[in-house]
């Protein structure tokens, strides 16, 4: 266990946000879910007590007698925001006093640093380059992420859950978020920051980042494992595998979408176009962990090799 190495990585000014992220994201996820559950209980109570539902409009906190019906933004919300703003300002002040901007040596065009890392917020993208063709990981995926984020309001057919925390009413959306953002995106940033060392090799925390480390790893394309060697067949075989994955993943997603009465009702409100787009995005999102597993566990480089692109 090389504590010195671990401390070097963790204490790097560049990596401080990531170390913070390790604690902050689980905390706020837990905190939001806690509030959501409290609200869910309130909703249940109001549903069972129509009188109360008529007289009391507040949707936060387990409701108590004697509380005001509605709480105004001013001063009650704004004072909290003001307090939060002060605290954040303090944190930023102290941070900027104690940690300098992480400047390094002057760039040398003839000498690439190793490991050569993107800014922390792009490390997820950089990590994706390990698993996909640069064209897929660097262009197609980021574009789809942006498009996917843009289209969320247009494919979200669930009218509930606006303006308050709830889990029950938006179970599907919350799980999609937890899977896509926290499990995939954030963990890839953490991997890129703390795990990837010289040569973009995998170093468990506490291992020495040795520039001379050599590991024996041979990644092969899937068709090589199967034994297909000539081109049209390679492309066709890969296409079939990818197509097969899409069918299976699509079916699995469909099962999840139609798992409960409530979600079937929401599905009923969706047009075919909305459904197709959502399925498409979900399948691609699922493809990432599947490809990661294929690479990390089975050493498969590409599944679908064509003269134009590789998947």
């Amino acid at each position: 266990m090389d504590w010195h190495q671990l401390w070097t990585i963790v204490s790097l000014p560049d990596n401080i946000p990531i170390v913070g992220m390790l604690f902050i994201i689980p905390f706020f996820t837990w905190y939001a879910l806690r509030q959501a559950r409290a609200n869910d209980r309130l909703v249940e109570r109001l549903e069972n007590d129509p009188d109360m539902a008529k007289t009391h409009h507040r949707k936060v906190q387990p409701f108590k007698k004697g509380w005001v019906r509605e709480v105004a933004v001013w001063p009650y919300l704004l004072r909290m925001e003001f307090l939060a703003a002060i605290i954040v300002t303090i944190i930023l002040m102290v941070w900027s006093i104690t940690l300098d901007a992480p400047l390094e040596e002057p760039a040398n065009p003839s000498l690439t640093m190793n490991p050569s890392k993107a800014p922390w917020y792009f490390l997820g993208l950089q990590e994706m380059l390990v698993y996909f063709d640069p064209w897929i990981a660097g262009v197609v995926m980021p574009t789809l992420i942006i498009i996917g984020l843009i289209v969320i309001p247009y494919i979200d057919a669930n009218p509930l859950g606006n303006g308050y925390y709830t889990y029950k009413q938006r179970r599907f959306a919350i799980w999609a978020f937890i899977f896509g953002f926290i499990i995939l995106w954030c963990s890839m940033i953490v991997i890129g920051t703390l795990i990837r060392g010289p040569g973009w090799m995998w170093f468990w925390p506490g291992m020495t980042w040795d520039h001379n480390r050599l590991i024996f790893e041979i990644n092969r394309d899937l068709h090589e494992i199967v034994g297909i060697t000539s081109q049209p067949w390679i492309g066709i075989f890969g296409g079939l595998v990818v197509g097969g994955f899409m069918v299976v993943a699509g079916y699995a997603c469909h099962r999840i979408i139609t798992a409960t009465e409530f979600s079937r009702k929401i599905l009923g409100r969706m047009s075919l176009l909305q459904y197709a787009i959502m399925q498409g995005l979900l399948i691609i999102m699922l493809a990432l962990p599947v490809k990661m597993a294929a690479r990390l566990l089975f050493r498969i480089k590409y599944v679908w090799v064509t003269p134009w692109f590789n998947v």
């Binding site: 108590k64 007698k65 509380w67 005001v68 709480v71 009650y76 307090l83």
Partner: peptide
């Protein structure tokens, strides 16, 4: 029936 103070409106910060 016991009236509880509203934490949001009554609590002082």
């Amino acid at each position: 029936t016991q009236v509880q103070p509203d934490p949001i409106t009554t609590k002082s910060y």
